[in-house]
Design a protein around this nucleic acid. Structure first.
Length: 619
RNA sequence: GGGGCGGUAGCACAAUUGGUUAGUGUACCGGACUGUCGAUCCGGAGGUUGCGGGUUCGAAUCCCGUCCGCCUCGCCA
């Protein structure tokens, strides 16, 4: 597989009618050649009788030199504004003072002709976004998005978009090598019954009816399996009308959507973990330290093990700090909070923060305040001080109980132990958040290590606490482990062939071996109270496709942007999207969404009916 | 919709917690400099402190309202 990138892949094809070389091509061996370059004026060093200009293009930077022996060109160079596009020609000469920091640092271009093709007019006289490296390039997001075409000129952003291409190109190549067929699926499609809110597109030909943009090509890829295409993939756009997060782009994002027939889940895992391993091994991103894998093959972690050990189902495996179940040590305690949890069949969990007491008295208070901010009740804690228990639970627990906990966790003096209690999930969740927070504070996460894992054995059903009903835990269309037989027993014991892949605490994808058997499907839905008729009404077109011979199949769909984020150590998804939307799903560059004309509305048989408080003009 | 943080020169930030003429860096303009390379040195210009009201002798700072951005909860089969 070729791993050449669009940067290093610059060969003779970069010679054009307008230039002979790129700004990253000239070397000592080119000395004496007459060349023509085009690019942006990057940095100027004006010494009056001699001017140096760093000329920048997509590929790199070349130094231009203007001397007093050509006063006309020298004056032009002094006058040209930064970020203007210029063409220059001249002779490649060896530098008197070489610059080892530049790829082209052994040479420079002695300019005999300069043409300002497209001046940076810069009406305000000042750029709204600072381009040169070294300027703070992560701030004023609003201005950056309004002037994204300038923002993308910056080295880091430009590199990110190139890296995005490298990674996607590599994904395509890998999937092709593994025998996958890339198929495009409809963008104008139908509203799916569950999931996020849909984006709707009104139909002109069918007044009052709407298309929906796909939240994922889920139904299409399953239909492709029913059609006999053994292995499908697509770099698929997905549209969901949900609110933004740092790692969640509002509106639209991409998945490496894949599905394969006649497989079990390990077959799916193999394709994906080979891909990520090769991404790590073979893709080189300029300016990025090479990543290493924490483990290969990726560990398979059962859902409940992940909850018990890490307090979440997307564990960051780069550090320890695992949770302990101290229910047995505290059974029979008179502390009401714990006693109630244990009496209800729940758990008490503990997390040891080594040396946490040495951080000072305010530390626990700060941690507890932070935890409350997340919506938890609080953060009871113990401290081992001079061999005895201290902390907020000092009086609530007996010294013997505290000592049992210390012993189980292997505590030494100054260790801080924080507790969570409740059912198996909620007892662990609060500590899972604390675990991640402590790791971040202490810098325990090696930014160059990728700790992938597959999360497996998700429960198929769960009990809704509010109305005591059995409901699907995750995807109702995944295959229950054990098939029809499993659905005869206690639903809460049924596991699904449902899985996630995560890396460094970020969920990259979920996936499943699908339920392709109508009989099992009806039974699975019957358990949550759906009649056969309801299932047919809501999901009939899928089930119908399974009535004509459909192979067992499954897949997953790793998020493209999230994958790129972890390879680039970017904390925000906007940094890996060329033209991102803001938190309110607006594109500040082109100013969308925006009102449309009355004629357009009329053609679609639509009228706007705004709530009285919101005044939005129509064009 | 809720919570948190923020908005000061083109850009990035500061202003000793209500007190002199709102500073620093960078960018910009002018000057010096023939080997610079994130050039350096000297000088200059640049402000309705998001917007509106209020408290006060005095507001960037405190209060109320409002707009905008980011983070987050809800949401994300």
């Amino acid at each position: 597989m070729s791993t050449s990138t669009s940067t290093s892949g610059a060969k003779s094809t970069t010679r054009t009618e307008r230039r002979s070389h790129t700004c990253n091509q000239l070397r000592a061996s080119d000395v004496g050649q007459t060349v023509k370059l085009g690019g942006w004026v990057y940095r100027k060093r004006d010494q009056k009788h001699q001017v140096f200009i760093d000329l920048r293009d997509h590929y790199g930077v070349t130094q231009l030199v203007f001397d007093a022996d050509r006063p006309e060109q020298l004056e032009a160079a002094r006058a040209v504004r930064p970020e203007s596009v210029v063409f220059v020609s001249g002779e490649v000469v060896a530098r008197e003072a070489k610059n080892p920091k530049m790829a082209t640092g052994e040479v420079e271009l002695k300019v005999t002709a300069i043409e300002v093709d497209s001046p940076c007019e810069d009406l305000s006289k000042l750029l709204p976004v600072a381009i040169p490296k070294g300027s703070n390039d992560r701030d004023n997001e609003q201005r950056r998005m309004e002037y994204r075409f300038l923002d993308l000129r910056r080295e880091r952003m430009h590199r990110n978009i190139v890296a995005r291409d490298q990674i996607i190109r590599f994904m395509r190549a890998h999937m092709a090598e593994e025998g996958f067929l890339e198929v495009q699926t409809p963008i104008l499609t139908n509203s799916s019954p569950e999931g996020a809110r849909d984006y709707l597109v009104p139909s002109r030909l069918h007044p009052g009816q709407f298309y929906a943009l796909p939240q994922a090509p889920q139904q299409w890829k399953q239909l492709l399996m029913a059609s006999g295409f053994d292995r499908y993939f697509q770099i698929a756009p997905c549209f969901r009308d949900e609110d933004a997060r740092a790692d969640r782009s509002p509106g639209e994002f991409y998945q490496l959507d894949m599905e394969m027939a006649f497989v079990g889940q390990e077959d799916v895992f193999g394709v994906i973990e080979r891909m990520y391993k090769r991404l790590v091994d073979e893709v080189e991103i300029p300016g990025m330290k090479k990543k290493t894998l924490l483990e290969f093959p990726f560990p398979r972690i059962r859902y409940w093990d992940a909850i018990d050990r890490f307090g979440c189902d997307k564990p960051d495996l780069r550090f320890g700090l695992e949770l302990e179940d101290v229910s047995d040590a505290l059974r029979g305690t008179e502390f009401a909070l714990f006693a109630e949890a244990l009496a209800g069949g729940g758990h008490v969990k503990a997390l040891k923060i080594p040396g946490g007491a040495a951080e000072g008295k305010g530390y626990v208070r700060k941690l507890e305040k932070w935890v409350k901010g997340l919506g938890y009740g609080g953060l009871p804690h113990l401290i081992l001080k001079g061999g005895a228990a201290d902390g907020s639970l000092k009086k609530a627990l007996s010294e013997a109980e505290s000592q049992k906990v210390f012993a189980q966790l292997g505590c030494v003096d100054d260790d801080l132990v924080v507790f969570g209690c409740g059912d198996r999930l909620s007892a662990a969740q609060v500590l899972g958040d604390v675990r991640n927070q402590v790791a971040e504070e202490r810098g325990l996460c090696d930014p160059d290590v990728l700790g992938f894992s597959f999360l497996v054995d998700y429960p198929f059903y769960e009990r809704d606490e509010e109305n005591d009903k059995i409901e699907f835990s995750h995807n109702p269309f995944s295959m229950p482990q054990g098939g029809m037989t499993a659905l005869e027993g206690d639903p809460l014991d049924v596991l699904a062939y449902q899985y996630d892949i995560c890396c460094n605490g970020i969920e990259l994808s979920s996936g499943a071996i699908r339920n392709h058997r109508p009989d099992i499907m009806y039974r699975a839905f019957e358990i949550v109270g759906y009649s056969k008729e309801q299932v047919d009404r809501e999901f009939g077109h899928m089930i119908n496709a399974f009535r004509y011979g459909c192979p067992p199949h499954g897949g997953m769909a790793p998020g493209v942007e999230r994958t790129i984020m972890i390879f680039l150590n970017e904390p925000n998804i906007r940094e890996v999207v060329a033209f991102p939307k803001n938190q309110h799903c607006q594109d500040l560059l082109v100013n969308c969404p925006s009102p449309v004309s009355d004629a357009q509305l009329e053609e679609l048989h639509l009228t706007i009916n705004l709530p009285p408080t919101e005044q939005t003009g129509s064009a």
